[in-house]
Amino acid sequence: MVTSVADNDAALVARCKDGDDRQAFDDIVVRYKDRIVNYVRRMVSDRDDADDIAQEVFVRVYAGLRGFENRSALYTWLFRIATNLCIDYRRRRRRPERQHLSLDALPELTACGNSDKGRGDVTTPEQAAIHSELSLMIERAIGTLPERLRAVVLLHDVEGLPYEDVARIVGCPLGTVKSRLFHARSALRDTLGPYLRGEAPQVYDKDRSAI
């Protein structure tokens, strides 16, 4: 019988709660650290602060595990904590963070990308360059969105979470999620439109296509 991720998560949570099992908690961290780090780094462009916040997410989880009752999925709870911490962080900084991500802060762009998310086939170096360039442009454009729109795009379009989970994470009705997603995509399209229509200069020369 195939055990689902949710079942595994519930078992890990139960081990943490019942037996104060530190290894089970470590397993939770290992299972979700990459996704949380990815999300937080895209919400908070300062990489060191982002990693600090991502670690804080798991500290909050450890502190609150006894009260977690599996009414929602574990990852939904993780992303909710992460979202709240990111919003708190930006409020503390008292200025809107609508800046382009620096090239240094961007992930290393490869033709393969995140294989578990099913990137399309990229066969030629030129196709790979175009794909990488599009990724870079999208990454930058997402970085310019207001945080409420950015969170929804990251959770749904990047992380692939369903509308219902996004609604639970950001704490708003389903209709609001759909509306925010529409506005976010419209804004991204406004930013990326010239590039998509071939009217904007390319980020990289063809000579530097092997990025």
């Binding site: 650290k33 990459d34 798991f58 992930p107 990308g113 995140n114 999208i138 990454e139 692939g160």
Partner: peptide, 22 residues
């Protein structure tokens, strides 16, 4: 195109010492 591109964005792995930091 944008949605598909966003879904395929590269993953940034957590630092090696992430669990140690937690």
């Amino acid at each position: 195109v944008i949605r598909d591109g966003a879904r395929a964005l590269s993953s940034m792995p957590a630092p090696d010492d992430f669990l140690l930091g937690v």
